[in-house]
Write a protein that binds this DNA or RNA. Structure first.
Lengths: 192, 192
DNA sequence: GTCTATACGAAGATAGAC
DNA sequence: GTCTATCTTCGTATAGAC
């Protein structure tokens, strides 16, 4: 297999395993086996575990940007874009109930490990926050845009957190409806 | 040192280390060193890592019950009791920004490890949920009590999650004010 | 109940052959 | 670029002396 695609393959598998089992609990051997390469070959691409974490965070940043861009392209109205974000909770309900939110759980784990890449992982949250803020600005919420963006983000994080603990799909749907209701209330308040 | 107090001491230290560094990342050696005993002696009290996790979860359940009972004893009005819960985010802001919410992060980690004690850890959330529900019932919210309880719990979890990622104290204070505002809005809606 | 010594395996990481 | 072999450290866990 060519160098670039093997490297890409490793990152893809590491991303998945880090999400499902956690960063620390995932070993090089786990990744190598799933990637179909030897541990020795693995080290040709990544010298340390931190290096692969770095690459995984890069990938997640890239994919998050692509997803946010996609929502902007698909939905012309900010409200529908924000709803697309909120409904991610429903679309990903099965993995969320099993493994939590990929961003929140990575940030939490890296915080406990006091890991150097802590801030880089938090940047993924930063992308969402900034994007949501932008949508609220387009809606006309100048001063409150940042606050509302963080509020939606926090709320969805809380739903993911409890959904992981209780494995309750109905709870997710109810909260998603509530967040959407809150959003429409905010939008309505802007036209007054 | 007597048996009971050594055992208690181990649990106390394990609880703290599990919170600050995570369950998996904390080794027996870490606990033994901090407890001032040898690893060999450690095994006299706990045969496996799961056994000590079990004891730590027990301790957390007990302490959570005691805290909830304390709030009920100190505040006669349900509103003030719920506010006491919400303001836990402010009281514990420093450790939350450094290590997250003890309950949420433990549940998330155990979910990733697919650990047998996953449900037992979630029981701690259950205690909070049940207690909050009870307070809302006293306020007269019969049908909505459960939903509101889970809502407050989820919201506070989300705040803890983002606070850990962004290390933003102002954000915590703002959200706590928002949750309290939401609470008063719900209470006001009950008298109509 | 507490200790030291030690077995055993897993995980990160390296060396060097092909 | 990919492999096998190996080193080293660390973590769980046990045995047995005191």
């Amino acid at each position: 297999m060519a160098s670039a695609s093997t490297r890409h393959n490793i990152i893809e598998i590491a991303d998945d395993l880090f999400y499902r089992g956690g960063f620390e609990a995932t070993s090089f051997a786990d990744i190598a086996v799933k990637a179909g390469i030897s541990r020795g070959n693995f080290y040709y691409y990544f010298k340390t575990k931190d290096e692969i974490l770095d690459a995984v965070i890069d990938r997640r940043l890239q994919r998050t940007r692509a997803m946010l861009d996609g929502w902007e392209a698909q939905a012309p109205k900010p409200r529908e874009r924000i709803v697309a974000f909120i409904e991610l909770l429903i679309a990903n309900r099965a993995p969320i109930m099993a493994h939590g939110c990929p961003v929140g759980t990575l940030c939490a784990e890296l915080a406990k490990l006091d890991h150097v890449h802590q801030e880089r992982a938090a940047e993924i949250f930063g992308l969402f926050a900034h994007w949501l803020e932008k949508q609220f600005r387009v809606l006309g919420a100048d001063e409150a845009a940042r606050e509302w963006a963080l509020h939606v983000l926090a709320w969805s994080q809380g739903v993911a957190s409890l959904a992981t603990a209780f494995k309750d799909e109905e709870f997710i749907r109810r909260e998603v409806a509530d967040i959407t209701g809150w959003l429409d209330g905010r939008i309505a308040s802007l036209s007054n």
